[in-house]
Computed example of a mutant assay.
Amino acid sequence: APSNVTMGSESVKVVARCRPLDDREKTLCCKMVLSMDVHRCQCFIEKPGAQDEPPKQFTFDGTYYINQTTEQLYNEIAYPLIEGVTEGYNGTIFAYGQTGSGKSFTMQGVSEPATQKGVIPRAFEHIFESIQCAENTKFLVRASYLEIYNEEVRDLLGSNTKQKHELKEHPERGVYVPDLTMLTVHSVGECERIMEQGWKNRAVACTLMNKDSSRSHSIFTIRLEICNTGKYIIFSGFFFLFFY
């Protein structure tokens, strides 16, 4: 996959994506006010009815318009992050935007067409493909899923998803949630099942933009513990996936 990201680099890249119009917007005959120059990574926003005003211009590290797929975004943006995680580095994808902006469309994705499969299921496939191809290496893969709702932390994979959990800070581990459910997974199918389980436990409510809008901030974490049996080296990498 194409990549210009150095493995293990400390850089933070900001990417903007414009999702396709949904069925509701098509029914209302909504018009696009956003355009992109994907080669220059620029976005242009026009003010409706203000023909004399120049569009607002913004520049990012990457831009993806409605005709570009999640597959392309993954190959160019997420692929090098996953590669880094399999080498013991931490990686994060932080999806941020208002209700209806397309966070779930990009991260969770849709089953059809296959090119719009989300970043998270693609990450599952990528990780287990890397595990199958690795030589003289053992992997332990674990996953957790939590949400932050009304300033309360909830375990979406726990027996009581309404229970409030606390945040703690460790000098070496950093910020963590004690007693957070961390499930061991052995296949893509298991990852998808626990993702679906947690997805059903989210706090949702209807909005004008989205009838199933999430009311919370969600964090899905994959932890890889890696043991190189030839060199007796053990290291781990975290891959965090945020929906905000």
Score class of each variant (00 low, 15 high):
S111G: 07
R40L: 11
E225V: 11
L21S: 06
H170A: 10
H217W: 14
P48S: 12
V175G: 03
M195N: 01
P80S: 02
E129D: 10
L167K: 07
N150Y: 12
H126S: 02
N90M: 12
E46Y: 15
Q51I: 06
V185F: 04
S214R: 15
F58M: 03
G109K: 00
T115R: 07
S101T: 14
A50W: 14
Q98H: 15
L224P: 07
P80M: 04
D212G: 04
A16N: 07
G109E: 01
G174E: 13
Q108G: 01
P171Y: 10
V85L: 04
C133P: 01
E225I: 12
F242P: 01
L224F: 06
L21C: 06
S130G: 02
S101Y: 12
H217G: 10
L34T: 15
V15Q: 00
V188G: 00
H170T: 08
N67G: 04
D179K: 07
Q42D: 05
V119W: 00
G198T: 02
E192F: 02
S130C: 11
E76Y: 08
F239H: 00
A16G: 09
A134H: 05
N136Q: 09
H39F: 12
P113S: 07
N90V: 15
V141Y: 06
I45M: 15
R173N: 12
Q68A: 03
R202F: 06
F242E: 04
P55H: 10
Y74G: 00
G84E: 09
H186Q: 13
Q132H: 10
M209G: 05
D23P: 01
P55R: 07
P121S: 02
L21Y: 13
L146F: 13
T70Q: 14
K211I: 13
D37S: 09
H186M: 12
K13W: 11
V12N: 00
I234A: 08
F238M: 12
V15M: 01
S9K: 10
L140G: 02
V141E: 08
P80G: 03
I120M: 03
S214I: 14
C41K: 08
I77C: 09
T229N: 09
C30R: 15
W199F: 05
K200G: 01
N150A: 12
A123L: 07
R19H: 04
Q197Y: 02
R17L: 11
T92Y: 02
V14P: 02
Y244P: 08
E76L: 08
T69L: 03
R40P: 09
I233Q: 09
T27Q: 13
S218M: 14
G237F: 07
S236E: 13
H126V: 04
L34Q: 04
T63P: 01
